[in-house]
Amino acid sequence: MIGSIVRRALLFAGLWWVLAEGRHDGWLLGGVAVMAATWASLRLWPAAPMTLRFAGLLGFLHFFIVNSLRGGIQVAGMALRGRAALRPALIELTITLPAGGERVLLVNTLGLMPGSVGVDFHGTTLRLHVIDERLPVIAEARALETAIAGLFGRST
């Protein structure tokens, strides 16, 4: 508990330093803001049991940046070629991630990954719109699931 308070307060202090662009004359207000933010974060997101792992975070960020680059380059190419390049379809996929933060992150992140946009979600069934059904979108979604599981400290 104490550990997570200190960690979050340090994080918010770093954020304040960035927002104030490194100036030192605003730390009185900054201190109040840091305390308020720490209090709010503990109310909204209690310390346990959802803990992000640092190694998982690096792995996820790497995965996310590489794949959003691939996705953006791919769709930019399609835009320049016009609708002849498209072969859209809806597909359904059963996901294995537990409910909560993991699934929220999954559906929201999918729209930035190559070829897919999340359309609907009920139970464990996720419906995706794919921009070209010849692309290996299911494998991409599975890889994203694995990266998110790693971020939340679970292995699949």
Binding site: G71, I73, V75, A76, A79, P88, G115, V117, H129, I131
Partner: peptide, 19 residues
């Protein structure tokens, strides 16, 4: 250029993110 709302979302979300 894309034909429907879903395809346009692909273009906007992914390309503008990189932009």
């Amino acid at each position: 250029r894309f034909p429907d709302v879903y395809c346009r979302l692909h273009a906007l979300a992914k390309a503008d993110n990189l932009g």
